[in-house]
């Protein structure tokens, strides 16, 4: 039987069965509380100083969003006054930064595909495992950010150092994770496959890989945040565009009216990508 959300005893009742509506309401409470808290602090600060930029008001935030979405960055030229809304968006600061950061992000994700395949091989081919495992385990413990100076020397301060920081930061964990997922495939499946005339590559790519793919996609989903973290670190240190670059620039000008929308935009992008991967996982693997 469904239990009431208003009864405080239910908060610590393992056997409680909240109603669907109660679950929905509860899931939004913290969002609403955060907004209310922010609005309260903002109004308190604005009562003291109407020009306060530390906790911008709703009006300032809307202005900040408008200037990010419809106006070009400071370093870019202005558009003709007769430009359409779409042209304004395409020429805007947030569009430019999103494209710059997005392309770095997706190139790094593409470069992680070989890491997944290496993890698969390490998990299934014993000699591969013996050759790589200890090295990758050791490499995984190196703090990727400490490699940044070396990356700048090797790849220069352009795109590749930032992309390689993301790849080097996430690849070892992804390799080890894929290796573990591969090793969790029941031995019976592999034995059975060999009795069905499969070759070694057939077993790896037609039996094991399709089975581990959903878990590997989940692993990639969990790596989205570390990827973004390394991207932001790289962009904040050496970049001329990108979402993190803009946040770093705005910090100097105390531009919280831009920083806050940017932070929410980044979170929204990552949330959207995570949702897309979850959706793809469900659609591509109806057997789960």
């Amino acid at each position: 039987m469904a239990t009431s959300v208003l009864d405080p005893r239910n908060l610590v009742d393992i056997q409680a069965r909240p109603k669907r509506s109660a679950t929905q309401i509860l899931s939004w409470v913290l969002f609403l509380a955060s907004i209310a808290l922010y609005a309260h602090f903002s109004s308190v600060r604005h009562r003291e100083n109407s020009e306060d930029r530390i906790v911008p008001s709703a009006k300032q935030l809307v202005q900040g969003i408008q200037s990010s979405v419809f106006h070009p960055a400071e370093e870019d030229d202005d558009l003709d006054p007769g430009a359409t809304r779409w042209q304004q968006i395409r020429h805007s600061m947030i569009w430019k930064d999103t494209v710059a950061s997005g392309s770095r992000f997706f190139i790094a994700m593409a470069l992680l595909v070989p890491a997944i395949l290496l993890g698969l091989h390490m998990g299934i081919f014993p000699y591969f495992g013996a050759f790589f495992l200890r090295y990758v385990l050791f490499f995984d413990k190196i703090v990727a950010l400490s490699l940044l100076p070396i990356l700048f020397i090797v790849f220069g301060i352009d795109e590749w150092s930032k992309i390689m920081l993301m790849v080097i930061g996430v690849a070892p964990t992804l390799i080890l994770d894929t290796c573990q997922i591969t090793r969790a495939v029941p031995r019976e499946q592999i034995v059975k496959a060999f009795t069905l005339k499969c070759s070694n590559l057939d077993v790896a790519y037609r039996v094991v890989f399709p089975q581990i793919l959903p878990n590997v996609i989940n692993s990639v989903r969990l790596s989205l945040k570390p990827l973004a973290l390394f991207l932001f670190a790289g962009e904040m240190i050496a970049s001329t565009d990108g979402l993190a670059y803009r946040i770093a620039i705005m910090r100097r000008h105390m531009g919280m009216d831009i920083i806050i929308p940017y932070l929410l935009w980044v979170a929204l992008l990552l949330f959207g990508l995570d949702t897309l991967l979850r959706f793809l996982n469900r659609r591509l693997h109806p057997w789960l």
Binding site: E188, K192, T195, Q211, W287
Partner: peptide
């Protein structure tokens, strides 16, 4: 020497490929 197709095999569980 190795597992091959001379023998058919039916284990107690995990005998089917779950994605097929």
């Amino acid at each position: 020497k190795q597992i091959d197709a001379r023998c058919g095999y039916v284990p107690q569980k995990y005998s089917l490929f779950p994605n097929r």
